[in-house]
Design a protein around this nucleic acid. Structure first.
Lengths: 204, 204
DNA sequence: AGCATAAACGGACTTTACCCCGATTCGTAT
DNA sequence: ATACGAATCGGGGTAAAGTCCGTTTATGCT
């Protein structure tokens, strides 16, 4: 049987060897990150060699250097997403939207501080934050919670983008690693500021 | 007379030839950007050759590829800054802080849409948004205006960073150029959303 | 099982950002 | 005017990202 010519849907599942190599590469990357220090010392050549694969394979799998870090991040984001979608309130469903929004910000800030190095390295510069990682969950989730709040005269999509930026931007763009010598303090301060911002924005 | 050994302050003015070359390089870069299309087709080699200078000079002047775009942006920002600091209200001084804040956002959005390509290219990725360009004016200015509003129980510094991110983030990080096929529309929509955000945040 | 086809692999090749250091030029104090 | 020190220039050199294409391998069909 021939595939319908115009079928959309997932173009085709990844081949088994490809999937295995992807996992292997990600694992190797993590190892290397743990051994050497900075994310910026991880080179594609080194990764390929260490994994015992060709460089072409690495690029075929991840497209770009940033792509590797995007994949790592996505991977780490997975159970974070689970908690948001199906975990306990107030992060998961069940709590009132305002509380969920606050809890989401708090959790996301913690996550980003934890993963700041990978998150930074996942930015490409020459292109917007890619679909599939980072924002989409944030943006969509925030947007959904905002919708429940029935704000009046509001461009929800834009507000969601703005709040996503207010949440991610500081850590992705503006704060130097020097500002994070005391991650715990920063975490608390940012979480608090987020709560304030949300309460101000959403107050009737 | 010898300079005091521990003097801080500007380490020394740029030498005349260096300054001339800097200007020349920036001008050449602009020309090339205007001729070829994208910012990503501007290579350091090409710039050096076109300017009739050595590659080393280019790097000495700007440090990094992103540095060139930062310099271009800073250059363009100069009269924008003038209007903010000494121009007519409501952008310049004289208007009530809330109105200035709204006007500032509106102006910055327009500026960023105008300069989106250079602004994007000026991001480094491996380091936070550099001092001297972009944020500092935004952050400082926003922070100053917020201070006039006497918000209660507020971490002004954090709020300023958040709002800066809400202002710059969408254009720097999240919006694809596809979203900007109709810059005028986007501009209006974002300006409106900014006004809404600010009014919500600053309402007593 | 055997085959056809599309996907994945590998590694040499190209391009480009960035470094280095000897040669040169500017600015200043005499 | 001149000489000296310091900053700048130049362009060849290095390393790392990303591309290409001939070869190999998985997968679905008969």
């Amino acid at each position: 049987m021939e595939r319908p010519a115009l079928s959309l849907g997932p173009p085709r599942a990844e081949r088994a060897d490809a999937a295995r190599n992807r996992r292997h590469l990600l694992a190797t990357a993590r190892t290397m990150l743990a051994e050497n220090g900075g994310a910026d010392t991880l080179t594609m050549d080194a990764l390929a060699e260490r994994a015992g694969l060709g460089k072409g394979t690495v690029f075929r799998r991840f497209g770009t250097r940033a792509g590797i870090f995007q994949a790592l991040l996505e991977d780490d984001e997975h159970d974070f997403q689970l908690q948001v979608i199906a975990g306990l309130p107030p992060l998961g469903p069940g709590a009132p939207p305002l509380e969920r929004l606050i809890a989401y910000g708090r959790a996301r800030i913690a996550f980003l501080i934890d993963h700041r190095e990978i998150a930074r390295a996942s930015l490409d510069g020459s292109q917007p934050v890619p679909a599939g990682t980072e924002s989409p969950l944030s943006r969509t989730h925030i947007r959904m919670l905002l919708a429940h709040l029935r704000l009046e005269n509001t461009d929800l999509d834009m507000l969601a983008v703005q709040l996503t930026a207010a949440l991610d931007g500081p850590l992705l763009l503006y704060m130097s690693s020097a500002d994070l010598t005391e991650p715990t303090t920063t975490d608390k301060r940012m979480a608090h500021a987020w709560q304030n911002l949300i309460e101000r924005v959403c107050r009737p």
